[in-house]
């Protein structure tokens, strides 16, 4: 099968800042692909170009077989997105929010079923702005799934969530992958990339400096003779936290 996302020599600058400096990579259909990098590396810029939201200065990109630069709305029809910074229309319930986005695709969907699939069935009639951070992320994913996208783009889906909510979201993302959707996510959490992603691209100052399955990246590092300077712990503080507060998602 041909790659579902193909990026060739992509470039973007904002005035003096070269945010993306000619990157090339591809994403296999059905995988969870992670774009990992520190703040300001250019992750959001890259993702939003692929989503047809920003214009690139050079290079080429296709998503789901559609040229992003020539037919951005064709791309938009085939993908689902969760933006790093965005909000929903005011004063709507979770269910109406899903309906609003379905209307944006000119589709009618079973809103309740979709909300149940992200574990929000109980919250269908709750005002969207009264949801917790984790619930809002899941609603955001629900709105991104209304058009049964071929690729789901998630820009830092777990930032700001507590450990339980993060794990819950990971399960959801694996679930979505299990239904055959390709997932393209960005993160700066290494554990998240390691656990969730089939392949990871590490981005640094507009360049991709490594791209491999997480295990391979680690093995390569060890093969270069790397040893951790501190003693490997059997557990860390996060394990303590999860042990004390449980693995279940917190719902007030």
């Amino acid at each position: 099968m041909p790659p579902i996302v193909q990026v060739n020599d992509l470039r973007k600058r904002y005035g003096d800042i070269e945010a993306v400096r000619g990157i090339s990579f591809f994403v296999e259909p059905g995988e969870v692909f992670g774009l990992l990098g520190p703040n300001g590396a250019g992750k959001t810029t890259t993702v939003e170009i692929l989503e047809g939201l920003r214009r690139a200065d050079g290079g080429s990109a296709t998503v789901a077989g559609v040229d992003v630069f020539r037919d951005p709305s064709g791309v938009k029809r085939r993908i689902g997105v969760q933006l790093q910074a965005s909000a929903f229309p005011d004063h709507l319930t979770a269910r109406e929010t899903v309906r609003f986005f379905a209307a944006c695709y000119d589709l009618v969907v079973d809103e309740l079923a979709l909300l149940r699939s992200v574990d929000l069935g109980e919250r269908a009639n709750q005002p969207q702005d009264k949801l917790s951070g984790g619930q809002r992320q899941r609603l955001s994913i629900a709105t991104a799934l209304v058009n049964q996208p071929q690729v789901l783009f998630l820009d830092e889906p777990t930032t700001g969530l507590d450990p339980q909510a993060r794990r819950n979201l990971w399960d959801l993302i694996r679930d979505i992958q299990g239904r055959g959707t390709t997932v393209f996510l960005t993160t700066h959490y290494l554990d998240e990339a390691e656990i969730l992603c089939d392949r990871v691209a590490i981005m640094e100052q507009g360049n991709i400096v490594a791209l491999n399955p997480p295990r391979k990246l680690i093995d390569d590092l060890l093969a270069r003779g790397f040893t951790k300077p501190v003693l490997q712990q059997k557990a860390n503080l996060e394990d303590v936290f999860l042990d004390l507060t449980g693995h279940e998602l917190r719902e007030p």
């Binding site: 989503e51 047809g52 939201l53 997105v81 933006l83 909000a87 229309p89 944006c104």
Partner: peptide, 19 residues
């Protein structure tokens, strides 16, 4: 309403759909 939508990113999110 529209400037608030613009600032909060509501319009961006909507423009990520083919509406």
């Amino acid at each position: 309403a529209l400037v608030a939508d613009k600032q909060r990113g509501v319009l961006r999110r909507i423009m990520a759909t083919p509406v």
